[in-house]
Write a protein that binds this DNA or RNA. Structure first.
Length: 351
DNA sequence: TATCCGTGGAT
DNA sequence: TATCCAAGGAT
C-alpha cells in the first residue's frame, strides 16, 4: 500500500443496501430485486453496453445500444455482419477503434468460444477491445465473479475514500488490490453500485456526502473538502491544426466521399477529402480545377488537438476522373460511416 | 509508460 | 468561450 495512508476495506453491506434502494434503471441492467430472484443479464448485452460506455456518457450510448441490439440481437448476428455496417451504426459515437474491436471480438467469440462469451475475467481479457475494466465488469455483472471493477467513477470514489495524495494513475494498482479486498458475494451489484455512487453521489463536481453509504469511513469527507480528490495530474495543452476540406459535387449533386486509411485517427471511417492538417494554414491546393466556393470554417475539438478546417465546395467538371471513392446521395448520408467532423463539414457546405 | 484515440453535455 | 470530463484499450 504505497499510496494509501489508511487502507480500510469498504463497507460493502452499506453499499449494497444503498444500491437496493437507488439502483438506476438501465436497458442492459438487471435490477437488484430480479437478480436476487436468480435472473442474470445477457453477457452479450452487458459486453456491448460496457464497450459503448468506455469514456462515453450513458446519455450518448442510449440510442446506439437500442439500435445495435435491434439490428443484431445476438453476438452471432453481430459477427455475421460486415464491418462496414457496424461502422455506419457506430458513426458519431467516437473512438472508432472500439467498433473495429467490437466486431473482431464478436467474431472471436463465435470462432473460438462457440458463440458463448467466456465466464471469467481472465479469459475475457484475451478478447479484442476488452481490457482490465471491461473484463472485470462482465465477469462480475454476469457471473458474480469477485473481480475488482475499477472505472473512472470508482477511481474517484476510492481516491476520496482514501484521501489519495497522488494522481490516480500513480496508485491505480494499489486502488485495485485494495478494492479487491472489499468485493462481497454480490459482486455484480457491488460493482454497479460503486459506479452509480460515483455517477450520482460522489460526482466530479459535487459530493453529497450526507447521502453516501461510505461517508462513515471516508477520509476525504473527513478533510472537509472531498472535491480536492482525486488530485489532478498536470494537463497538456491542446495544439491547433489547420487545413482545408473539399466538398465535391457531380452533375447530379451527389457528393464525393472516400474511406480513410486503415490506421490512425478515424481509421476506416468515411471522409470528405481534405488537405493535410498542419500547424499553420497553407493556401488551398484544390484537388481538381473548378469554380470553388468558400463556406467559412468548421471547428472540431479532438482529445489531443483542435482542428480548424476551411470548407470549400465546387461542382467538378469531370467526376469520372475521381475513382478512389464514390458519389453519395446527399439525402442519404445517414447510411455512410461519417464521423461528426465530416458531418459538420457537409453541413457547412449546405448539405 | 505516455500517448493516441471522439464526442457532446455541463459548468 | 474555455475547460472538464464520461462505465478505457491498444500500442
Amino acid at each position: 500500500m504505497l499510496h494509501l495512508s489508511t487502507p480500510r476495506p469498504l463497507d460493502a453491506a452499506a453499499v449494497l443496501a444503498w444500491y437496493d434502494r437507488h439502483a438506476r434503471m438501465l436497458p442492459w441492467r438487471v435490477p437488484p430485486r430480479a437478480r436476487a430472484g436468480g435472473e442474470r443479464p445477457d453477457p452479450y448485452r452487458v459486453w456491448l453496453s460496457e464497450v459503448m460506455l468506455q469514456q462515453t456518457t450513458v446519455a450518448a450510448v442510449g440510442k446506439y445500444f437500442a439500435r445495435f441490439t435491434q439490428l443484431w440481437p445476438t453476438v452471432a448476428e453481430l459477427a455475421a455482419a460486415p464491418l462496414d455496417a457496424v461502422l455506419v451504426e457506430w458513426a458519431g459515437l467516437g473512438y472508432y477503434a472500439r467498433a473495429r474491436n467490437l466486431h473482431a471480438c464478436a467474431r472471436a467469440v463465435v470462432e473460438r468460444h462457440g458463440g458463448v462469451f467466456p465466464d471469467t475475467a481472465e479469459d475475457l481479457l484475451t478478447l479484442p477491445g476488452i481490457g482490465p475494466y471491461t473484463a472485470a465488469a462482465i465477469a462480475a455483472i454476469c457471473h458474480d465473479e469477485r473481480a475488482a471493477v475499477l472505472d473512472g467513477n470508482v477511481e474517484r470514489v476510492l481516491a476520496r475514500y482514501h484521501a489519495l495524495s497522488v494522481p490516480v494513475r500513480e496508485a491505480k494498482e494499489d486502488l485495485r488490490s485494495e478494492l479487491a479486498r472489499s468485493v462481497p458475494a454480490r459482486a455484480g451489484d457491488f460493482a454497479q453500485a460503486l459506479m452509480d455512487l460515483g455517477a450520482t453521489i460522489c460526482a466530479p463536481r459535487s459530493a453529497l456526502c450526507m447521502l453516501c453509504p461510505l461517508e462513515p469511513g471516508c477520509a476525504g469527507a473527513r478533510t472537509g473538502n472531498p472535491l480536492a480528490f482525486p488530485v489532478k495530474a498536470a494537463k497538456a495543452g491542446r495544439p491547433v491544426r489547420y487545413g482545408h476540406a473539399f466538398v465535391m459535387r457531380d452533375g447530379d449533386g451527389d457528393v464525393y466521399l472516400r474511406t480513410r486509411p486503415d490506421k490512425g485517427l478515424l481509421a476506416k471511417m468515411t471522409e470528405v477529402p481534405t488537405s493535410e492538417w498542419a500547424g499553420a494554414l497553407a493556401a488551398p491546393n484544390y484537388p481538381v480545377a473548378a469554380d470553388w466556393r468558400h463556406h467559412g470554417q468548421v471547428v472540431h475539438v479532438f482529445t489531443h488537438f483542435r482542428l480548424e478546417l476551411e470548407v470549400w465546395s465546387a461542382t467538378v467538371p469531370a467526376p469520372a476522373l475521381l475513382t478512389e471513392g464514390w458519389w453519395a446521395d446527399p439525402r442519404a448520408t445517414g447510411r455512410e460511416a461519417l464521423p461528426t467532423l465530416f458531418r459538420k463539414v457537409l453541413a457547412a457546405a449546405g448539405i
